[in-house]
């Protein structure tokens, strides 16, 4: 038996909207630790890892570890029927082939339940090793989204370079070249407006902008995005989910063969 109740139901909606463009079908894993997911995009270039810790739920019951295969666009269709202020409960029986989503309005005067068929998904679980990153950039998530969107009108790839100068985003296209440099800026009124750059070693990596733009669909989850870079490692683009966990996107770089 699985029963998860989240008063701030809009979080589920935001999580789904953040990952559904990248991944079609995924196994949601439920254990005493929390509700999690790991999935790759269809071309196996990017990976998404979600964790919603059990402590973040108002009610969390998971009698035994359970993995539920779901189609994310079907799930998103059902979650679209939930109001932004609704309380969302996810229920499933052990060994069952359906999952139930229950939406309660804050005043309890409207209660809906949606039953969705589960699917069997043969997905590969990858071990993500702990790594020391050469550079970690924290910046406003809206600023990062703006940069990715702007650069993708000019080129297909972005070179992200971190040096003493700051973090530089470069693209090239048929019409020309674009460079955007963000310098460390901690003297702002609000911490969520700061750009903070930790650099152990200079780093420069090339990525497909198409994926970066897809990651920025998770922007409503957090005011801040953390970009961790190491030469010859996938970049990690992380959106923290307040008091609950995170959505992390890993993207393999473009490399010289």
């Amino acid at each position: 038996m699985l029963e998860l109740r989240l008063v701030q139901g809009s979080l589920f909606k935001k999580v789904l909207d953040g990952i559904k463009d990248l991944v079609n079908d995924a196994n949601f894993d439920c254990s005493s630790t929390g509700f999690s997911l790991q999935a790759m995009d269809s071309s196996h270039v990017a990976l998404v890892a979600l964790l919603l810790r059990s402590e973040g739920f108002e009610h969390y019951r998971c009698d035994r570890n359970i993995s539920m295969g779901m189609n994310l666009s079907n799930m998103a269709k059902m979650f679209k029927c939930a109001g932004n202020d609704d309380i969302i409960t996810i229920k499933a029986d052990d060994g069952g082939d359906t999952v139930t989503f229950m939406f309660e309005s804050p005043t309890q005067d409207k209660i809906s339940d949606f039953e969705m068929k589960l699917m069997s998904i043969d997905s590969e679980h990858l071990g993500i090793p702990e790594a020391e990153y050469h550079a970690i950039v924290k910046m406003p998530s809206s600023e990062f989204a703006r940069i990715c969107r702007d650069l993708s009108t000019i080129g297909d790839t972005v070179v992200i370079s971190v040096s003493k100068e700051g973090v530089k985003f470069t693209t090239k296209g048929d019409i020309g070249i674009a460079n955007i440099v963000c310098r460390q800026n901690t003297s702002v009124d609000k911490p969520e407006e700061a750009t903070v750059i930790e650099m152990n070693e200079p780093v420069s990596l090339t990525f497909a902008l198409r994926y970066m733009n897809s990651f920025t669909k998770a922007t409503p989850l957090s005011n801040i995005v953390t970009i961790s870079l190491s030469n010859e490692l996938p970049v990690v683009v992380e959106y923290k989910i307040a008091e609950m966990g995170y959505v992390r996107f890993y993207l393999a770089p473009k490399i010289e063969e």
Binding site: M40, S43, H44, V45, A46, L47, E124, H125, L126, G127, I128, P129, T157, T206, A208, L233, P234, Y250, A252, P253, K254, I255, E256, E257
Partner: peptide, 14 residues
């Protein structure tokens, strides 16, 4: 010219 690496190059099946 650069080619797109895949995730499996870095992360192994667990």
């Amino acid at each position: 010219l650069k080619s797109q690496a895949r995730i499996a190059r870095y992360f192994r099946s667990s």
